[in-house]
Design a protein around this nucleic acid. Structure first.
Length: 779
DNA sequence: CAGTGAGCGAGCTTCCGCTTGACTT
């Protein structure tokens, strides 16, 4: 048994560190936090100065037990959790649980897993920083209070669904998406005309090339036409040429957030997928820790990278750089995300290969030379008016870091169109140019694009909201709660007016472009919109984009010993408690109602609103004699944008399609989406089928096919006992009523031949000895 | 499973941040 027990957070780190420290140390991991607030009654004694009630959660008991035993046998326990607020708190919890005295337990920290860093840390242990621990307690308690007092308000005031939630991070994330959507809905595109003139000249090799020059944008079609007319028969002369050297520098090495952004832009990955693959790479020892906000690289790594660049591209491509974090809220407990060995250009694992190569390239580029460019700007005079055209070209003089990597961009330009700059042919001042044509193209301004998962993470990080470990889970939460949906949107066609001046003639045409198409973007649901409105109205302070930044600076005060954590929490809680009480007492139930007009047939009011089961439209009022009619909105419709005509169209269901096999075929939309009802059986319709337009001829094969699929799934039926043996994706299983019973491997093999007695015995046995409950994720 | 759209009121839900596997119908 080693004399020393050293505890870190991550098991993969433990392995590496154990190798570095040798036989005197046994290195174990505590797998993150080992204690958390109890869930009952918030886990906080508010009346006793916010005293937290901590418990060891079910899934941490095993690791705590093991650490306790090891701690007892060791001479000395070293706490080597991450150097940030959470890491300090984890160390304190370890003291509490393992019975260590914080006043003399050795606490060490390192920001990189390298031999010198670890050795140095062990040589200079310090003690636990209780101020930092208290800052974490304030953070934890405040988040618990906000979440556990705000969520119940929603349960009371929302007519639909339970398990709604609100919190400091998730509610603001939804707000960002909701606001962006409304910005887009309210956006009025404005058109103007881009003026481009095309000329043909000879390039350095004497080959004719066409290049373009831009004129001042014209605001109306009339102005554009006038301008083109005014150029009729003109000569074009190069008036001035400027050549400017420019540089481009590489981006900083990856943090969690930038990795998620680039993997989204270049590989099309969602943030969860990126993190899953990164975790695999980390566990296999290929990359450093993937949840980090630091752009720092260790000296060891820098040397490795420099050597690699030198080997591969030569010394003139090397340019060592230190990057600074732009983000104030960064805690920098780890290194940037980088390969552990730069001479490994790739990995064998097919899934994570592309992500690894992205990390490798980004890391290399970060220490490479600037790319050197030469920008040429030519001003061109028009003989028939005093307009000036500008041609720009860019030539790469030295590729530098671009040899391996360039950073992607979110497409956020506001409709100015593509600015790609090619190479200009050699031009002389005073040169007469060979005019080809001039084109005026209508361009529309565009609203800001909807968020992708990754661009939302970027925004949250800018606001200092959330942490590397929570970006992906936060997005999962708001999707799971139904506040937000990730989907595509089809664009709509729009006419573009185009005018061309060629051979002294003016031609006018109309082309069309597709606008507003979106792929894999985040859309707020009606639920997300109404909940956001409600929270904004009653809890504007918490919904404020600066709220987290504000309390973070107070946590800093606590960490610096200038403020008591319980006092800070109390100053937040007193007014918050009042807001909660006022809201519960006075706020209306959340309906999100919007009036669409009056039914032309009955004159009754038509409204769109939230109902118990989601967004719907309603004709008539509950107080009227005749019952109102209801219809659910389609998934792509929204209370905020649905029109009267679209609403009335929804009342076309249920539809009778006619007879099939002697029974009536009906389509409708139910609790679980569109379905066909036929002969007392129900068949769900897939997404691509429209229940409003499906015909009997289309419905019949669906009935046959679905009926057959169901038959194939069914291995055996015991009618009397209402027990079925069904085939699922994990093999055969037993279904009785709503409950499923799992079969063992042996039972699965003879599933089709099981007798009713055997089946009953299996059920009885499973009821008596239920399979051990694992901390199962709730739906 | 295939309705409902309001309200009664059991009993339940819920936060953010650290970490990984176990388990799915």
């Amino acid at each position: 048994m080693a004399k020393n027990l050293l505890i870190v957070e991550s098991p993969a780190k433990a392995k590496t560190i154990e190798k570095i420290l040798g036989d005197d140390f046994e290195v174990k991991s505590c797998y993150g936090h080992i204690r958390d607030l109890e869930k009952d009654d918030m886990g906080i004694d508010i009346k006793h100065n916010y005293k937290p009630r901590y418990i060891v959660p079910e899934d941490k008991q095993k690791v705590v037990k093991e650490l306790k035993q090891l701690a007892k046998k060791s001479d000395e326990v070293w706490l080597a959790t991450d150097e940030d607020r959470e890491g300090e708190a984890i160390s304190w919890h370890l003291c509490e649980v393992l019975g260590l005295d914080p006043k003399n337990t050795k606490r060490i920290v390192f920001h990189e897993i390298t031999k010198p860093a670890i050795k140095q840390a062990v040589a200079k242990p310090r003690l636990l920083d209780m101020n930092l621990v208290n800052a974490q307690q304030a953070r934890r308690v405040l988040d618990r209070i906000v979440g556990f007092e705000l969520s119940p308000v929603l349960w009371r005031k929302m007519s639909m669904g339970n398990s709604l939630s609100a919190g400091r991070v998730q509610s603001v994330a939804v707000r960002l998406i909701a606001e962006r959507e409304r910005e887009i809905n309210a956006f009025k595109p404005v058109s103007s005309f881009r003026i481009e003139a095309f000329f043909t000249e000879k390039d350095a090799q004497g080959r004719p090339v066409t290049f373009k020059a831009e004129g001042a944008r014209q605001n109306t079609a009339q102005a554009a036409e006038q301008f083109l007319q005014s150029c009729m028969g003109a000569g074009y002369t190069v008036k001035d040429i400027q050549v400017k050297p420019t540089k481009r520098s590489p981006a900083a090495p990856f943090t969690t957030s930038t990795l998620q952004q680039e993997a989204s832009r270049k590989l099309g990955y969602g943030v969860s997928k990126t993190m899953l693959l990164a975790q695999k790479l980390y566990e296999a020892g290929h990359i450093t820790y993937m949840r980090t906000d630091s752009v720092n690289l260790s000296d060891t790594a820098l040397q490795d990278i420099q050597g690699q660049i030198n080997n591969q591209f030569g010394n003139k491509y090397v340019q060592m750089r230190k990057y600074k974090n732009k983000n104030e809220s960064a805690q920098e407990a780890h290194e940037a995300i980088r390969p552990t060995y730069m001479n490994h250009h790739t990995v064998n694992d097919a899934d994570s290969k592309r992500l690894y190569e992205l990390i490798w390239k980004r890391t290399m580029a970060s220490q490479m030379a600037d790319a050197e460019l030469e920008k040429t700007i030519a001003k061109i005079a028009v003989s028939t008016n005093n307009a000036e055209l500008t041609a720009t070209g860019e030539v790469l003089k030295f590729d530098g870091f671009l040899k391996v990597y360039y950073e992607g961009r979110d497409d956020e330009d506001m409709g100015d169109g593509d600015d790609e700059e090619g190479v200009l042919p050699p031009l002389q001042k005073g040169q007469q140019l060979h005019f080809k044509e001039m084109k005026a193209t209508e361009r529309f301004t565009r609203p800001a694009p909807r968020y992708t998962e990754a661009s939302l993470v970027k925004k949250l990080e800018e606001l200092g909201i959330g942490r590397p470990s929570t970006y992906a889970p936060t997005i999962s939460t708001i999707l799971k709660r139904g506040y937000v949906e990730k989907r595509d949107k089809e664009g709509i066609k729009r006419d573009l007016r185009i005018m061309v001046l060629r051979n002294n003639q003016l031609y006018k045409t109309v082309e069309n472009e597709n606008t507003g198409a979106e792929k894999s973007k985040l859309f707020p649901t009606d639920l997300g919109l109404v909940v956001t409105d409600f929270l904004n109205q009653h809890f504007d302070d918490i919904m404020d984009y600066g709220f987290t930044a504000k309390i973070e600076s107070e946590f800093d005060e606590i960490a610096n010993g200038k403020e008591q954590w319980t006092k800070m929490v109390d100053e937040f809680y007193q007014p918050f408690k009042q807001d909660i009480a006022n809201t519960l007492e006075t706020a209306q139930r959340i309906k999100g109602e919007r009036e669409l007009g009056a039914d032309t047939e009955t004159g009754k009011k038509v409204v769109a609103r939230m109902g118990r089961f989601g967004p719907m439209v309603q004709i008539g009022d509950a107080n009227e004699e005749e019952k109102p009619r209801f219809a659910k909105l389609k998934s792509t419709q929204s209370i905020e944008t649905i029109t009267y005509a679209e609403a009335m169209d929804l009342f076309r269901l249920p539809r009778q399609l006619g007879l099939f096999e002697g029974s009536e075929v009906m389509v409708n939309i139910g609790r679980f989406g569109p379905y066909i009802a036929h002969d007392k059986k129900f068949y769900s319709l897939s997404k691509d089928i429209d229940p409003y337009s499906i015909t009997l001829e289309e419905a019949a094969p669906i009935i046959i096919e679905k009926r057959q699929a169901k038959d194939e799934r069914t291995l055996k039926v015991f009618e009397k006992e209402k027990i079925q043996i069904l085939k699922g994706p994990y093999g055969p299983y037993i279904k009785q009523g709503l409950r499923n019973y799992k079969l063992t491997k042996e039972q699965q093999e003879k599933a089709a031949s099981l007798t009713i007695e055997e089946v009953k015995a299996i059920i009885d046995n499973l009821k008596a000895n239920p399979p051990k409950k694992v901390a199962r994720k709730k739906k």
